[in-house]
Amino acid sequence: MQVLTSLPVDLPRPVADGACDHLPGMRLPEVALNSTQGGLVALASLPERLLVYCYPMTGQPGVPLPDGWDQIPGARGCTPQSCALRDHHAELQALHIQVFGLSTQTTAYQAEAATRLHLPFALLSDADLAFSQALRLPMLEVKGMQLIRRLTLIVDEGVISKVFYPVFPPDQHAQVVLDWLNTAP
């Protein structure tokens, strides 16, 4: 049985391939995304500083991950990353950061994870890939699923000001982002 909250010690490191180099300075698309907290969220319209962490997919207890998942660089770690952001959420709020998770999974699928992990922030569904395609986010295909590669966007008034990509290790990324936020303008 796989433990979703911890990472294997031999997890492969993703490579910095330049797939997000075009993102800083881009305006977010006017796409409304379904939220696990109900309703639609248009990230481009939010005036706050945002932390939008994009992840491939969360696993579910008792449901096997796709074959070879742990060998795909950057695939494994969505649950530990979400838990770390949950654990640092108060610090992020103190910096006036609004946090969102984003994946191509359906809202119903994401809602299970949000509830199970006690996430204090919304997970947003880009199941139709409108947001991902508009920004040309790096994707991977696994068992017919189109998944976003793990990355984090810092957004100010609808414009991407910072991109963290690749993200590794995912369980320590919340602290990396906090360190950057505490020294950034």
Rank of each mutant, 00 (worst) to 15 (best):
R116T: 01
V176D: 13
Q81V: 00
Q60G: 05
L65M: 15
V9M: 04
G101V: 00
Q172Y: 12
L43D: 00
L4H: 05
H22T: 12
E112N: 01
A127V: 09
T115D: 00
W69D: 10
D128S: 09
V63Y: 03
H22D: 13
L50N: 08
S132V: 10
P14D: 07
T104K: 02
E30C: 06
Y165W: 10
C78M: 03
A114F: 00
T36F: 02
Q60F: 03
E112A: 03
I154T: 12
A84E: 04
I160D: 08
T106N: 05
Q146D: 06
L7P: 02
G158S: 13
T79S: 06
H22Y: 10
L129W: 06
G62W: 06
G38R: 03
R136P: 04
T107M: 07
V176Q: 14
Q133L: 13
P80M: 00
Y53N: 10
A134V: 07
Q175V: 13
P12N: 07
G39F: 03
L23R: 07
A184W: 12
A174P: 05
E91S: 11
R150C: 10
R86L: 02
Q2A: 09
P14T: 11
Q81H: 08
R86V: 00
A16S: 15
A19W: 06
V63A: 08
Q110V: 00
V99K: 01
D21Y: 08
D87L: 06
L11S: 03
M1H: 07
W180I: 13
S125N: 04
L129D: 10
L85E: 01
E91F: 04
Q98C: 12
T104V: 10
Q60N: 09
G18T: 08
L124D: 02
Y109I: 05
V9P: 05
N34K: 05
A94M: 09
P14S: 09
D17K: 09
S103Y: 01
C78W: 01
E112C: 00
P169S: 08
E141D: 09
V155C: 12
L23F: 09
I160L: 14
S6L: 10
